[in-house]
Amino acid sequence: MLETKQIGYWYTNEKASLFKNVNMTFEAGESYAIVGESGSGKTTFLSLLSGLDKPKEGSVELEGQNIRKMGLTNYRKHGVTVVFQAYNLFTYMTPIDNLLTAMSITKSQHRGDKDYAMTMLKKLGLNESEMKKNVQRLSGGQQQRVAIARTMVCDAKVVVADEPTGNLDESNTVEVIELFQKIAHDQGKCVIIVTHETAVARMCDHVYQLAQHEFNEIN
């Protein structure tokens, strides 16, 4: 589904590249963890997959089409959704309105369907009262669930997450990764997570380690 073809990235000096000649394939219905030491380039790699940055060489392709030819703005609206450690919710809105706004922006097939938004939030453990609160009044775990629900109501086939459990306790961490697994396995989406937590990585279907400028599958 999502492929990298000979991609490489560096800041100012090609000889000091973070990685080069990376060829990887990510399939629908599977979850992937990207691990590596701080500064190794794993978050940069995720930004390339999500169309937030461009590789210095090579290409990222969704179903055989170069995402740059699709238009990165178009790709970010319709091809991929991103879950950030800081949630990136509209803080002046309720969970319901956050989902409805995302559905409208991405032109989801369910856009405008408030009942659908509420159903998805309920599946992720929010009750009706919590759905109608300003998101800033929710706990960190609840806000992350809203961010995940946002990916579920959009039609994008690829979900990428940058340290999505970094602000959560152990119990919430397990529940959140289980939700990502459901998105992959039940919705048939491709889920790619950058994490520094070994326990989180082990819960995913595949784990790739970025070390010494190369990616290697370790399970």
Rank of each mutant, 00 (worst) to 15 (best):
K133E: 13
E37R: 14
K5C: 12
I34L: 15
D97W: 08
D162W: 07
Y32S: 04
K132L: 11
Q143R: 08
F90M: 13
D162R: 08
N172Q: 03
L89G: 02
Q212W: 10
C154F: 08
F180A: 01
V146N: 04
T91K: 12
T25G: 13
I105E: 01
Q181L: 13
L179R: 06
Q142W: 01
H110F: 09
F84D: 00
R76T: 07
N167L: 02
L46V: 05
G39T: 12
G64S: 08
V200S: 00
Q65V: 07
E14V: 09
H78P: 05
K189R: 09
Q209H: 13
S104Y: 12
L62Q: 03
K132H: 13
Q85W: 05
I105K: 00
P55R: 02
N219D: 11
V200N: 00
N74K: 13
H110C: 07
I67E: 06
M70L: 15
S139D: 07
V159A: 03
K69P: 05
V194F: 05
N23W: 06
M24Q: 15
T106W: 08
I177V: 10
G36P: 11
G166Y: 00
T119D: 12
E27M: 12
D169I: 06
M203S: 10
T12D: 14
G141F: 04
D155S: 03
K107A: 14
G125M: 05
